[in-house]
Amino acid sequence: MAAIDDGGQVGTRRSALARGIAVALGVPGLILFASAAGFGALARDAGLSLGNANLMMATLFALPAQVVMVDQLARGGSLLGAALAVTLIGVRLLPMTAVLVPYLGGPRGGRLGKVIAVHAIAITAWMEGFRRLPAIAEPLRLPHFLGIGAGLILASLAGTTAGFAAAGVVPPAFAAALLFLTPIYFMLSLIETAGGAGDWLAIAIGAALGPLAFLFAPGFDLLLTGVVGGTAAYLLGRRWRGMWRLDGHDDTVRDDLRDGR
């Protein structure tokens, strides 16, 4: 409605950027704020300064890698061990980035803009990109996603600072709820963006395989879950799509026969 009333004024790159930043003020921004607060408290426990906790939040911008790095180094592990753990846990960013790139404004989009934009790819921004970008005009997608990324990074820095300051004074039930926000939000977002048999199978198989892989191959669990579970979901989904097509065909034939008699 608004887009029509304003005679196209709403569809500018600047307003797409602003609406992206505004995402940080909604549910995703709040949840990232809370998750980052958990990281801020953890970083303080591990002996990191507030400045370095925020530096880690801004440069890695993916909580699993940050938690692994803090954990490894705080326990006195080697730098090489920490680098290996961060590398392994970062692999998931590859397929996540790859599937979002086609939505970042086509081949004409600015290369530098995309290199900056993909820095924001961690689960929250990826989810929001996947939810919002397909419904937006192609030239506005990159500025919109840059806005989402900038807003979410700011929200995460605010959260880190708040968590660092509040470490140890939050009641346990509330602290547990903060850590619970991330899994429930991720799962609901996956369900919301699921668009076919392959997606539903990937959610179900990944959810079943994740904890098992963690038990038997900690460190390699996400890689294993993604490649084995994702491939199985893809293959089953492809067969399923074929069956639906066949079923539809059979129904038509059956209806035709019934009509004929």
Binding site: P95, M96, I203, A204, I205, V227, G230, T231
Partner: peptide
């Protein structure tokens, strides 16, 4: 599918 399974 790989990305989705990883996140799940």
């Amino acid at each position: 599918a790989v990305a989705t399974a990883m996140v799940a």
